[in-house]
Design a protein around this nucleic acid. Structure first.
Length: 604
DNA sequence: GCGATCAGCT
DNA sequence: CACAGCTGATCGC
């Protein structure tokens, strides 16, 4: 949160990125970018009234910021009072102050939130005058990362390359491998989206598009179609019913074809109380947030909220194992690891195989944390997870290694990043380490087994690609597709003549060899949450891409119900009624149900 | 009812 | 711990 109060000491009659309190009296307003913490008070009635009374007061911002701001109806009252100023374009705004004159207090620089690679400042013309740096009286600086821990921040290009290759390595495994980019802010990821889309030929699924309606270079890379493999939508709230109610037992009423009652029970077991604690746990009714003066005479009611309250239940089920790099953590759920890797998982092998039945996506979230959620992990688990999660720890797998991006510069050879330094070389570096000495301890375990994204796959151990097309990471920086760049020309709001034709490939990338690989799989079961949709199964077949595409939902408005809905296999039919009756009968009598795979295939 | 603020969460 | 949000509870107007 920005602690800047909105006014610069030298020129207190203008306000920047704050619009409340004293700023209500400003003669001019500036908004550096469209992040909420820089917009405090911007839609308040007080400021609206001020505008109505002071017709010469304007808000100055970039064309992109203006466009994004006016997308929201709550800020639309600014429409006639915003003056957009082109970035990197010297613009004079006259605000003659009767008391102090104009500009007598020197040159000031307000940075907003920004990043600048080493050496870039020297290339910024506007920072210079007459061949030297301007005489700057004061700089109002974004100091978010003004901390020794962040002295080595990977460049934007390096971050992009790393994310790109990691995403590529995942989504090319099959059309069902999806990635979720956990973007916390509303804006600021356009650079990533456009580049991922451009490079991978896969549009990014987002919740809304209207804010980019006049930015075709961004728009063409985004979609509200959930059928894509890269998601940047808001994740559905990731609450498991069973974890919440925490029953002693859970009896499955429906056994998906191709699996057995025992297998389903095994999946449900960790969610039940018996596997977590012998003692029942009770959720608190709620803690009173603020002291109230209401007197409660009843002794029983006093006891109800007596401290200490029971610890709130947050059952994190080990369905995901996340290693934590310093900037991005990537959760990789791989159901088709090579057998050698499975063997190396030690006591986690069983859990991983079981867990892999439930998810099939990479969860990419920003994180600076070195020890995020450590406390949630039982120590017994922390010791054993070690190298189990990411395939890049194996030498013959060309998945990007994140520590590369967090190395000191002098650890990276001139030849680029082909010679990945060993993890031991990073020790002692001031730079945050990707994989700390206690990697296992930072393993993130969380429940992601939303029924909305359930993807059950059972297959041979050899069924995954060699990833031979994965390129090694390059340290070169590319400044392409950036929203800032768009500002400079590619993006001209409402200037349709400048809109280039789409160069976007609409087809989802599905390499041939990856595809054929699917054929070798023994069995693939995809469950979909849609009511009335069959649990589907395809044995020994691959699903034609064309058919798959036809089955994809294009209903953007139903996103909240299922962000990661995987389409069902087209050729299959609903389970027959008599078959279901048979299963129900068995369950009712408590008999175990064994569904032979062979039989299931024959049924279908 | 609305906005501001805070707690709690990711 | 900060980021950049979101949701819900509470309180004042």
């Amino acid at each position: 949160m920005s602690s800047f109060e909105g006014q610069m000491a030298e020129y207190p009659t203008i306000s920047i990125d704050r619009f409340d309190r004293e700023n209500l009296r400003a003669r001019a307003y500036f908004l550096s970018h469209c992040h909420k913490d820089h917009m405090k008070g911007l839609r308040a009635p007080a400021l609206k009234r001020r505008l109505e009374c002071s017709l010469k007061v304007y808000l100055y911002c970039s064309p992109v910021t203006k466009e994004l701001l006016l997308t929201s109806p709550k800020y639309r009252f600014w429409e006639k009072r915003i003056i957009s100023i082109e970035i990197e374009t010297p613009t004079q705004i006259s605000l003659v102050d009767e008391a102090s004159g104009e500009g007598n207090n020197g040159t000031v620089l307000y940075t907003g939130d920004f990043r600048l690679a080493k050496g870039e400042a020297a290339r910024m013309e506007l920072l210079h005058s007459g061949g030297r740096v301007k005489d700057i009286q004061s700089v109002y600086l974004d100091t978010t990362f003004c901390d020794p821990r962040f002295y080595q921040i990977p460049s934007r290009g390096e971050c992009l390359s790393g994310i790109l290759e990691l995403v590529r390595s995942w989504i090319t495994r099959s059309p069902y491998h999806v990635v979720w980019l956990n973007c916390k802010a509303a804006y600021g990821y356009e650079y990533l989206f456009t580049n991922l889309s451009e490079e991978l030929g896969v549009q990014i699924h987002v919740d809304k598009l209207d804010m980019f309606r006049n930015m075709p270079d961004i728009l063409h890379h985004l979609t509200t179609d959930r059928g894509t493999q890269i998601h940047a939508c808001r994740h559905p709230k990731i609450k498991d019913f069973l974890s919440y109610i925490c029953p002693v037992n859970a009896y499955p009423n429906v056994i998906p074809l191709g699996t057995t009652m025992d297998k389903v029970r095994e999946i449900l077991k960790p969610l039940c109380r018996s596997s977590q604690s012998i003692q029942p746990k009770y959720k608190p009714l709620g803690k009173l947030k603020r002291a109230r003066t209401i007197r409660v005479d009843s002794e029983e009611e006093d006891e109800l909220f007596d401290d200490p309250l029971p610890v709130p239940l947050r059952h994190k089920v080990p369905y995901q194992l996340t290693l934590h790099p310093e900037v991005f953590s990537m959760t990789v759920i791989s159901q088709n690891q090579p057998e050698e890797l499975r063997q190396s998982t030690g006591c986690f092998k069983t859990e991983r195989i079981q867990n892999s039945l439930l998810t099939n996506f990479i969860d990419c979230e920003e994180s600076n944390s070195e020890s995020e959620e450590e406390s949630e992990i039982p120590s017994s688990m922390q010791e054993d997870v070690g190298p189990v999660t990411l395939p890049q720890q194996k030498a013959d797998v060309d998945v990007p290694q994140w520590e590369v991006f967090f190395k000191r510069k002098d650890d990276i050879t001139d030849e680029g990043l082909e010679n990945f330094p060993s993890s031991t070389e990073t020790r002692g570096s001031q730079s945050p380490k990707l994989f700390s000495d206690s990697d296992g301890e930072s393993t993130h375990i969380s429940s992601q087994n939303s029924s909305q994204s359930t993807h059950i796959t059972e297959q041979g151990s050899q069924g995954w690609d060699s990833q031979s097309d994965t390129v090694l990471l390059s340290s070169q920086e590319k400044n392409i597709g950036d929203i800032t760049t768009l500002n400079k020309g590619a993006y001209r709001p409402k200037d349709k003549e400048n809109i280039p034709t789409s160069q976007m490939e609409q087809n989802v990338l599905c390499p041939k060899d990856t595809y054929s690989d699917l054929k070798s799989r023994d069995l693939e079961v995809t469950t979909t949450p849609t009511v009335g949709e069959p649990t589907t199964l395809s044995g020994g077949k691959h699903i034609p891409e064309k058919n798959r595409s036809l089955n994809l939902s294009t209903q953007a408005d139903s996103q909240s119900s299922s962000d990661f809905e995987i389409p069902s296999t087209p050729e299959v039919e609903l389970p027959k009624q008599e078959h279901l009756y048979y299963l129900y009968e068995k369950m009712a009598t408590g008999e175990s149900i064994v569904v032979e795979r062979k039989c299931s295939l024959l049924d279908i």
